[in-house]
Each structure stands twice: as structure tokens, then as C-alpha cells.
């Protein structure tokens, strides 16, 4: 019993939880910024940039905008952050001491949705029109991208007859896995809010989107949540590919390689596209998303 608690705390705080999740997420975010900069012929930010961005925000004085409940202003990012840490702890990365039980995938999905929900509420709470438009778009986009996301995960689960993430990580690579990874990748674009689905934080229309009124510590927490979300979602795709390897180092290597490849692919897509309208995005996810889901389910059932 004691052991269980220690393992849980280790998973929450160190691996794959807060600490390594944040570092990994920052690394991935830096990668994407650097990569895009290089694609655009620029030098790009230095390696430690996301880290310093975070600490600088921590060090700023927080301004609570007019008419916003202060407790709520702080609580929303904290709730989002906590749920994403718990979600990370569930991720069966190689060497994780984390908690694993039948049905943890369902819990993971709940926890992934939580920061999004908090984001949307945060947008509404801050009483800025820009944030409210952004929050609405985010809410709509959530409904759109969850179709391929949940579809792929459910199809895989049906195929493996288990809703346990560890089973996912242990499963061999098959066509169904690859299709599911593709579907997850399509959803990832909108989940990370990169082009062409950077609709909720479209700077040119609605200033800074949902977070327009956030600053200082709460904004830092949102940024941290975003970093953790990145490592979680990219990691979720990565664990699909570590099944066939036995050695933990090999697994780790594959995990990192896949993560980097995924983030590079994301950024190639982002760099080469204009932003779509939310109508386009919804249509895209509900047509191609349904097609992808059907394909994955078919592959899972037939192959």
C-alpha cells in the first residue's frame, strides 16, 4: 500500500508527471518554434526560451481585470493544471511507476478534456469580448476534433479488448495502430491549436483569444498546462509505437524519436497552411474525422 502511494507520487511529480512532462513539453515547444523559424529562414529562439517565458510570467505582478472574480481567475488554470498532471501520470511511458488499471483510458480522456473546459470557462469569465469569441470557438472546435480523437482511441480499445493504456503501450504495431496514430495526429493539430486550426487564438481577429485578459501567474500556469498537454498528447501517439521493443532503453529511444517526428510533422503542416475558419474546421473534422474513424474502426475490426 505504501509502495502504491510512493509510486503514485513519483508518477505525478517526476516521471512522467509534472517535472519531466514540463521539461519534455518545453523541449517540444522549443523544437516547434525553432523548426518553424528555420523553415521561415529565421534563427529562432534559443533552447531555454519556453522555460524563461514561464519563469518571467511567474515573476510578474498579476492584474485582475475589472469584473472578474479573483478566486475564479486563479482557480481555473490551477484546476486545468492539476487534471493534466494526473492525466500525465496515467501515461504508460517506459519506466513509469504510475498507476494503471482497467479503464484508465476513460479517466485519461476525462482529464484531457478538463483543461479545455477550464479554458472555455476562463474565456467567458474574463468578460472580454475577444476572449468570449475565442472561448466559443474553442468549445465548437472541441466538439469537432474529439470525433477522430475518441474514435481512434475507442477503435484501438475495441481491437485490443481493453481500456487499459498499458495494453496500448504493449500492443504490437499494426495497420490499425498506424491508422489510429494518423487520426490522433489529425486531432492533435486542433488540440495544440496550431495552424490551420489555430482558430480559438486567432491573433489577428480576436487579439490573443481566450487568454487575452490573463497575465502573470495564471497565464504562466496556462502556458505550463499547454506544455504538459503537448507532451501528453504527443506521448499518447508515441506509446502506440513502443510495443514491439523489449528493452526499456530501446523503448525510451523510440518514444522520443516518435515524439520528435510527430512534432516536426505538426509544424510542417502548421508552417505550410493559412488559418481556416471555424466552419471549415468543423466540416473538416466531421467529414474527414468520420472517414478516419470509420477507417480505423474497420481496420481494428477486420485486420
Amino acid at each position: 500500500m505504501n509502495n502504491w502511494w510512493i509510486n503514485a507520487i513519483l508518477a505525478l511529480l517526476f516521471w512522467p508527471g509534472l517535472l519531466s512532462g514540463a521539461l519534455f513539453g518545453w523541449f517540444l515547444l522549443w523544437m516547434s518554434r525553432k523548426f518553424i523559424a528555420r523553415l521561415q529562414g529565421r534563427q529562432g529562439p534559443p533552447f531555454y526560451q519556453p522555460f524563461f517565458d514561464f519563469w518571467k510570467l511567474i515573476g510578474k505582478k498579476t492584474i485582475i481585470p475589472n469584473g472578474v472574480n479573483p478566486v475564479l481567475f486563479y482557480a481555473l488554470p490551477i484546476i486545468g493544471l492539476i487534471s493534466i498532471i494526473f492525466a500525465l501520470a496515467l501515461l504508460p511511458v517506459p519506466g513509469s511507476s504510475g498507476i494503471s488499471f482497467e479503464g484508465d483510458l476513460v479517466l485519461l480522456i476525462y482529464l484531457i478534456e478538463m483543461p479545455v473546459l477550464m479554458d472555455v470557462i476562463a474565456g467567458y469569465v474574463t468578460r472580454s469580448v475577444y476572449a468570449q469569441v475565442g472561448a466559443t470557438r474553442e468549445a465548437i472546435l472541441t466538439i469537432a476534433y474529439n470525433l477522430p480523437f475518441l474514435g481512434a482511441l475507442i477503435a484501438l480499445a475495441v481491437r485490443l479488448h481493453s481500456f487499459k493504456l498499458a495494453t496500448f503501450a504493449a500492443a504490437p504495431i499494426s495497420i490499425a495502430t498506424i491508422l489510429a496514430a494518423v487520426a490522433l495526429f489529425v486531432a492533435l493539430l486542433a488540440q495544440l491549436k496550431v495552424n490551420p486550426f489555430s482558430i480559438p487564438n486567432a491573433e489577428q481577429e480576436i487579439v490573443a483569444g481566450i487568454h487575452v485578459e490573463y497575465n502573470g501567474l495564471p497565464l504562466a500556469l496556462f502556458e505550463l498546462t499547454h506544455a504538459l498537454e503537448t507532451s501528453l498528447l504527443v506521448g499518447l501517439i508515441s506509446i502506440l509505437f513502443i510495443g514491439p521493443f523489449t528493452s526499456i532503453w530501446m523503448k525510451l529511444l523510440i518514444f522520443f524519436v516518435v515524439a520528435v517526428v510527430v512534432i516536426l510533422l505538426t509544424n510542417i503542416t502548421a508552417a505550410g497552411t493559412a488559418r481556416l475558419k471555424v466552419q471549415h474546421a468543423f466540416k473538416f473534422y466531421w467529414t474527414w474525422g468520420i472517414a478516419a474513424t470509420v477507417l480505423v474502426v474497420a481496420a481494428a475490426l477486420i485486420l
Binding site: 523553415l39 521561415q40 529565421r42 490551420p196 489555430s198 508552417a271 493559412a274 488559418r275
Partner: peptide, 16 residues
């Protein structure tokens, strides 16, 4: 204009 439709890379290309 490119920036306004969120096409950041195009903006960079043109400014170059």
C-alpha cells in the same frame, strides 16, 4: 494580408 489569414510563413517570406 498573409498574417491576417494566419499564414505566418508567407508573411516571413514576403518580408524577406
Amino acid at each position: 494580408g498573409a498574417e491576417d489569414i494566419g499564414y505566418h510563413s508567407m508573411f516571413m517570406e514576403i518580408y524577406f
